[in-house]
Nucleic acid binder design. Structure first.
Lengths: 195, 195
DNA sequence: CTTTAAAATGAACGGGCGTTCAGATAAGGC
DNA sequence: GCCTTATCTGAACGCCCGTTCATTTTAAAG
C-alpha cells in the first residue's frame, strides 16, 4: 500500500505531477478540482490520495520541487570568476531555465497566496536563496568597481522581475529566437548595472 | 429597481467593488465566494445581484476599470518633448500609479486566466494600448539616436515587467522611500536603454 | 496456481458554490 | 397616511467540492 510506505510528500506519481502542473498553470489552483486532475491522469479522484495526502500538499510539493530544481540547476552551472561573466551566466541561465518550464514558473509566481502559512514561508525561503545568488554577484561587482548600483537588493528584485517577464510574452514560434532574446536581455541588464 | 435601470456593467456599487478588489487580490477570484464579498459589505449574497449580473462580470468590470483608469491617468499627464524626459515621466508615473493601487494591479496581472475569452480579449487590448504608449517613447528615442535598442517591442515588455515588479516587494514601512525607489529604477531604466 | 500486497474503484459524506426569487423592509414624494 | 419604487432578505435550486473507505481489480513473487 502506497499510503503506508514512507512520507507522502516526495513520491507523488510523475503522471499526477505533470497533470497537476499543467492544470494549475492553466486555470489556477483554486479553480482546478481533484476530479479534473484525476481525469487528466485517467483515474478516479480517490486514487490520487494514494500519492498525496491532500490537495494543498500536492501544490506545495510542486512548488518546492520547482524551486529546489532551480537552485540545484544554478549550483550545477560552472562558475566563472569575474562578476560581469557571472552576471551574464545568471541572466542566460535564468531565461533558459524558466522558458523550459513555463507552467512550473507560472505556478511558483501565482499560487503563493494559496499556500498555507507554513508552506508559504518554506517556499519564500527558497526564493530568497535564489535571489541571494544574484545579489551576491551584484555586490561582488560593486565591490570590484565594475557595477554602479546604489542598492543591490533593489536591483536584484528589478532584474529578476525583468528576466522572469520573458515568460509572459515569449512564444517559441514568434519573431525572435531564444538566443536573440537572451542576447538582448543580457545587453539591457549589463547596461542597467552600469557595466 | 437597480436591476432594471440601465446597463449593469458600469454601476456596481463602490462598496461592493472595494470589497471585491480586496478579496480577489488577497485570495484570488476562484477562491472568493459571492457570500464572502456580501459579508464584507454587510449584506446577503442575493443583494449583490442588484449591482452585477454575475461574478464573472464583476471581475471583468474591476479589471476594465483598472486598465481604463490607468490609461486615462497616463494621458492626463503633461507630455514633454524629449524621449528621455518622456521615458523618465513614464517610469515614475508607472511606479507611483501602481504602488497606489496594489490590489487592483495584482488582480489585473493574476486573474487574466479567469476571464472568459471575450473579456480576456478586451482586457488584452487595453493592456496593449498601455504598452504601446511606452513603445512609442522607445521608438522615438531610437529614431532620434538617443536610445540604443535593437528591438523596442522586447524592451517594452522588459521595462514594464521590471517596473511592475516593484509591487511585489515594496513596503511603505520599508527601508527605501518611494522617491528613492523611483530614482533608482529610473537610473536603471535610463542606462538599460543606452542613454 | 496461489498468495500477498499494491493500485484503483465508486459510492458516499457533509458542506459550500453561483444564482434565483417571492416576499419583507425601508425611504421619499404626495 | 398612502403609494411607489429601491433595497434587501432568506430560503431554495442543482451542482460540484475535497476527502474517506469498503471493496474489487491488477500484478508480482513464491
Amino acid at each position: 500500500m502506497a499510503r503506508k510506505t514512507g512520507s507522502h510528500s516526495e513520491i507523488t506519481g510523475p503522471r499526477i505531477r505533470e497533470a497537476a502542473v499543467r492544470l494549475f498553470a492553466r486555470h489556477g489552483y483554486a479553480a482546478v478540482s481533484m476530479r479534473q486532475i484525476a481525469a487528466a491522469v485517467g483515474v478516479q479522484a480517490g486514487a490520487l490520495y494514494l500519492y498525496t495526502p491532500d490537495k494543498q500538499t500536492l501544490l506545495f510539493d510542486l512548488m518546492r520541487a520547482h524551486m529546489e530544481d532551480l537552485l540545484r540547476a544554478w549550483q550545477a552551472e560552472p562558475m566563472r570568476r569575474a562578476p560581469l561573466h557571472r552576471l551574464e551566466d545568471f541572466c542566460r541561465f535564468h531565461i533558459r531555465y524558466h522558458l523550459d518550464r513555463t507552467d512550473g514558473t507560472f505556478i511558483s509566481y501565482m499560487e503563493l497566496r494559496n499556500l498555507e502559512p507554513k508552506n508559504f514561508e518554506m517556499i519564500g525561503a527558497l526564493r530568497r536563496d535564489y535571489e541571494a545568488a544574484l545579489e551576491t554577484i551584484l555586490r561582488d561587482g560593486v565591490a570590484e568597481g565594475r557595477f554602479t548600483l546604489p542598492d543591490t537588493k533593489l536591483s536584484t528584485m528589478a532584474l529578476i522581475a525583468m528576466l522572469t517577464g520573458v515568460n509572459t510574452w515569449f512564444r517559441e514560434s514568434g519573431r525572435l529566437s531564444r538566443e536573440r532574446v537572451e542576447q538582448i536581455y543580457w545587453d539591457m541588464v549589463r547596461r542597467s548595472v552600469g557595466a
